[in-house]
Amino acid sequence: MNRTEVRSLPVSGVEDAIWFEQKIKECEKNLFRFAFHLTGNKEKAEDLVQETFLRAFQYRHSYDHTRSFENWVYAILFNVYRQRSRKERIIRFIIPWRSQDDEEERFEDCLEWEGDDPEKFTLKKQVLRDLYAIIEKLPTPMKEVMVLCDFMDYSYEEASEIARCPIGTVRSRLHRARKLVRARLEEVYGEEILSLWS
């Protein structure tokens, strides 16, 4: 991921749009992955990214050109995601049966593994599926830092910038999130399951 670039300010609106499109092309795939990990659903992720680009374009003048464009867009996506999940929570509270029907597309279909041992592969696949379900159920603030730091490999500092919270908060949330995830996995697969990956 290219995170640091400096660019001079574009002048006209047309130039703005061209510049913006090009910038988007550079980061849309990463952004989509990020959105997918947050939402756990392809369609929602696409919507999220689309909305993010719209907002980013709307607020393009607030972008500080000495900083990374990608991180700036990530922060916007984060905001949109938070607003949406708040709305969803309210809807789910009012209409409780609605949460079931958006379970359709799970990530298993996207799973591609070039593994050698089929037995191990099946187990690993199972673990991955469960891992995903566990992360999905984490409280939103924990899930956010986990996606940022563990999936996207951001440093605590970058994560705190994107999620707009202090570094100490990132640190403690991540610690708790990992503890929780680990405990759940070991509950199902036994104490030694994680050594498969170490």
Partner: peptide, 14 residues
């Protein structure tokens, strides 16, 4: 080692 395992696992998932 377990923590590292988890970190790797998450990274692989991504």
């Amino acid at each position: 080692r377990k923590l590292l395992g988890l970190k790797n696992l998450l990274r692989i998932t991504y």
